[in-house]
Design a binder for these strands. Sequence first.
DNA 1: TCAATCTGGTTAAACGATTAATCAGAGTAA
DNA 2: TTACTCTGATTAATCGTTTAACCAGATTGA
Lengths: 349, 349
Amino acid sequence: MTASRPGPNLSRIATSLGVSVATVSNALSGKGRVSGQLVERIRERAAELGYVPSQAGRALRTGRSGVLGLVLPDIANPLFPKIAQAIEFAASAAGYGVLIADSRGDVAAQTEAINRLVERGVDGMVIIPRRATRISAAACPVAIIDTPSTPGNTVAADHWQGGLEIAGHLAGLGHRRVLIIGNNQESNVQNDRAGGIRSGMRSGMHSETLWIDRLEQENGIGCPLGLAEKVRQGFTAFAALSDLQALRALTELQQAGINIPADVSVTGFDDLIWSPVVTPSLTTVRMDMDRIAEIAVSALVDTIKTSSIREGVLVTAEIERVAMQLIVRQSSRPPEPGTKDLRDGEHVR
Amino acid sequence: MTASRPGPNLSRIATSLGVSVATVSNALSGKGRVSGQLVERIRERAAELGYVPSQAGRALRTGRSGVLGLVLPDIANPLFPKIAQAIEFAASAAGYGVLIADSRGDVAAQTEAINRLVERGVDGMVIIPRRATRISAAACPVAIIDTPSTPGNTVAADHWQGGLEIAGHLAGLGHRRVLIIGNNQESNVQNDRAGGIRSGMRSGMHSETLWIDRLEQENGIGCPLGLAEKVRQGFTAFAALSDLQALRALTELQQAGINIPADVSVTGFDDLIWSPVVTPSLTTVRMDMDRIAEIAVSALVDTIKTSSIREGVLVTAEIERVAMQLIVRQSSRPPEPGTKDLRDGEHVR
DNA sequence: TCAATCTGGTTAAACGATTAATCAGAGTAA
DNA sequence: TTACTCTGATTAATCGTTTAACCAGATTGA
C-alpha cells in the first residue's frame, strides 16, 4: 500500500499539457529554457490544479529541507512567545519552516535536542543559549542570539546599551542610590545589562547589586528579598534585570506598604506581557525581537545558500547589536525631595 | 552539483556487509524476514557508522513526514511556553518533530498558517484555538485543545471543574461575595471557568462578573478596574479567570492600600511563571499540560497511523477532560470576621 | 518421489522533484 | 553545401527508503 499524497504532482501537470515533467519543473522554477507562452500555460494549469510541490521530493533531491531549527534551552522563559513569534515570522517570510526543540533546561539534553533537529534534516539552526553554553558545532550552520559580548554571538539586543538607558533615565529623574536586582549571576545577558547600568551611573550616584540566586541558595526558593530594609538604607530606585524580577520587587515593596512610584521607583527589562497592565505599569526596556530575528534568519539563510557542503558554521551578520528602547511608564518618578533621598545623603556621608 | 548528505545511508551499510539494501532496511525496521544473527550484525554496523535514516527519503516513500504542526492563533499567550514544551516533549517521545505556526492573532492568517503547515507535509496538527474558531477541515488529522464544552474538542483541562475548585476553596474560607474577573467574554475557556465558579457557590454566596474587555472598550486599554470600589461594596474575594488578570487585580488593590490577603483574597488560573514569586504568592489552579499534550499527541498519532488516506479528521480521545489542581498559596485567606464581610451582609440586605 | 511449504534472503519498482546531458530543428555564416 | 550556433524542449539519472514480488535451497508431508 503506497500512501500517495492527494494533490497533483509535476507529472500530472505534465501529462495534462502533453509536455515533460522536466519542462514543468523548469517553468515553475524559472530555471531551464522554456518559451514564454508555455511557462504561462504551465503556471495557469498548476494554479488551477492547486499544485503544491512536495517538500519531501525536493528535499531528497536537493539535500535541503527548507526547515530551520529553533533551540531554546530554557523554553519556560517568558520571552519565548515573542522570540518564537519573531523567528517564525522571519523564517516563513524567507520560505522556511520552523521546527522547535526543547531541552528543558538540561545542558546534556540540549545536545540531544540539537541532534534530533539535525536528524530531521534542518538546514540551519537558531540557538538562544541560556548561559554561556559552548555550542558544539552541529552539522549545519548555526546562528546564536545571546548578547554581543558572547563570543560566537550572531546578533542580539544591545543589553549593555539597554542598561545605559535605564541608568540615564534614573539619573535624569534624580535618583542617587540604585539597587540592581538580577537572578542569575552566570547569565551573560544579565551581566551585560548590569554592566550597562553601572557604567551609566553619573557622579554622585551609587549602585549595589542583589543576586537572587545567591539569596535563594541561603534562604530557600521564593524567599523575601528584604527590599524594605534596602529602602530604609536609602535606595530610591530598584533596577531589575528582568521584568519578572521587577514584578517580584514591585509586589514585595507594595506589600510592605511602600508606594511606587511615590516612595521608590522600579524598572525592569524586556517589556513582558504583564508590564503594561500591572499597577503601577512598569518602566522597562524593550528589545526589537522582530528585527533581531530578521537579521539572524537572513544571515542564516544566506549562509545556507552559499555553503554547498553541509557543515557546522557559526553564522555572522553585519549588524551584531540592535538597540533597546526605553519604555517609560508609571513605576518610575523623581524621588520625593527632602525625604528619603536626603536622608540617604546623610546616610552615605 | 548534487548536495549529498554527509552521513552513511542504507546502501553504504549494505555494501559494507555484502548484503542488499532491502535486507538492511528490513533488519533495522524489523519488518521483513532476516535471520537473527544478520539483524545483529547489521544493527552493529549501523551504530558503528553512525547511521541516521534520511527523513526525506522515508517521507517521500511513505508519504509521511514524521512532523506534527502546532498552531497557536494567540502565540503571545503566556501559557505558550508550557504548551509548546509539553507538545514538543510528547511529540518527540512519539518520534515526531514539531513545526510551529503563528497567525499573530489574525483569524484570516490562521488559515494561511495552517496551509503552510500542510504544504510542509505535516502528518497532523494540534490546534489551540483562541476563540470558538471553526477549524475548516485541513488536509490532515487535527487535534484540538480548547475546553470540553467546545464542539470538536479533543482533550483539554476541565476548566469548569477548575472553577469549582476555586469556588469550593473560597467557600471553605468563608467568603460570601466573590467578584469574577475575566478579560474576554467570547472565550470558551473563560466562560467555562466562570461557569464553574458560579455553580460552585454555596447557599448564601453571591458572585458578580467583571469583563475587562467591556470595561476597556469604554475607558480605554489599561484602564483601572475600580476594584477598591468593589471592596467597599463588600466583595472579599476576587477570582480572576487567568493569572494575568489576577496579577492586574493584585497590584491594583495593593496600590489602593488594600492588603492581600488580610483585607481581601485574590485567586487566579494557570499557575503562570510569576505566580509563585509575587508577594503575596498567588493561589491558583493549574492544568496538567503534560498529560493533556500526551493524550492529544497520542490520539493524533493513532489516527495518523490508522488512517491510510490523508484526510481531514477531527481526532477524538477517550479521555476528554483532565482535572485541574488547586494550588493554595498566600493570596487567599478567610475574610476578617466582623469587618468587611459583616458590613457586606448589611449592604446586601 | 514429487509437490507443497518455509526460510532467508534479493530484485526492482516506486515516491516527486531536480538537473546534467542530449536532441531536433531552425537560422546563420562561410 | 557544410558546419556551427541557438532555441526549446525531452531523456534519463539521481537523491534514500520502503515494500511487493520473486527466488533458491532446505525441509516437510503424503
